[in-house]
Design a protein around this nucleic acid. Structure first.
Length: 233
DNA sequence: ACATTAATTATGT
DNA sequence: ACATAATTAATGT
């Protein structure tokens, strides 16, 4: 196993307050692995042997319904911890983590979790921050599902994607990992057909631009408008 | 207002 | 050439 450079972690929130020696110790206990796209890192219900830091790439957090249907709960961008079951007092993973793009992932044995959170300044508070914002996001999605129409939900999903994982180009903001109509439908509780129709319509209006597995938003403001939906009553 | 079904076409290896 | 992705129309709830 070759040595990992300390600069990999120094700027990431959970480790930002630590000294080089501490980072060194953390890295020396980590294992590093590269994942191709669409590979499962861990599965729902598995015993949480390890916790993870995404160094590069994107993670999709998914759950499977009893009848085998996929639901995408969340996307995680590089620089965040995931699979942190110990932080919420669980010994099995509550969901499945799949790479959405080629990714580089560090991981540690779960038994180190208490070490990390007691000995390393800022680690605990920062992880609870990200945990908090993920819960907040999922709460918003629950509200959307219950109250909004599909068009608004798809608009909101795209907005979240470009905010969290957007890459700016000349013409707009592009989601910087491959994403299909099917994927978007799994995020919004609709069908790939409806998503396809919506994207086609929005493309004609110049709001988005999409090819196979690629979606770019040209006019975020227009999407925000659509996300508001028709004014109540 | 949306899903489902089915047929057709486009796109990437 | 083959598999996967996307579009489109028709029909159903």
């Amino acid at each position: 196993m070759q040595k990992l450079d300390e600069s990999l972690l120094t700027h990431l929130p959970p480790f930002a307050k630590l000294h080089r020696s501490q980072i060194r110790a953390i890295l020396d206990q980590a294992s590093s692995k590269r994942f191709d796209p669409e590979l499962t890192v861990f599965s729902e219900g598995e015993t949480a042997e390890r916790f993870y830091m995404l160094l590069d790439g994107y993670i999709r957090v998914i759950r499977i319904t009893p009848d085998g249907e996929q639901v995408i709960a969340l996307h995680i961008p590089a620089g965040q911890l995931f699979g942190i079951a110990p932080a919420i007092g669980r010994e099995s993973y509550p969901a499945t983590a799949v790479t959405a793009a080629e990714s580089i992932i560090l991981s540690w044995p779960t038994r180190l979790w208490t070490d990390f959170s007691t000995n390393y300044d800022g680690f605990a508070t920062e992880t609870y921050k990200t945990l908090g914002s993920r819960i907040g996001e999922m709460n918003n999605r629950i509200l959307e599902m219950a109250t909004q129409h599909v068009e608004q939900r798809v608009a909101n999903a795209l907005l979240r994607l470009i905010n969290q994982t957007g890459r700016k180009t000349e013409n707009g903001v592009e989601i910087d990992f491959p994403i299909t109509r099917q994927n978007i439908s799994e995020m919004t509780g609709t069908t790939l057909h409806t998503v396809s129709r919506l994207l086609s319509a929005w493309q004609k209006q110049g709001i988005v631009e999409s090819q196979r597995k690629r979606v770019m938003v040209r006019q975020p403001h227009q999407l925000v408008e659509l996300a508001q939906g028709p004014l109540s009553s």
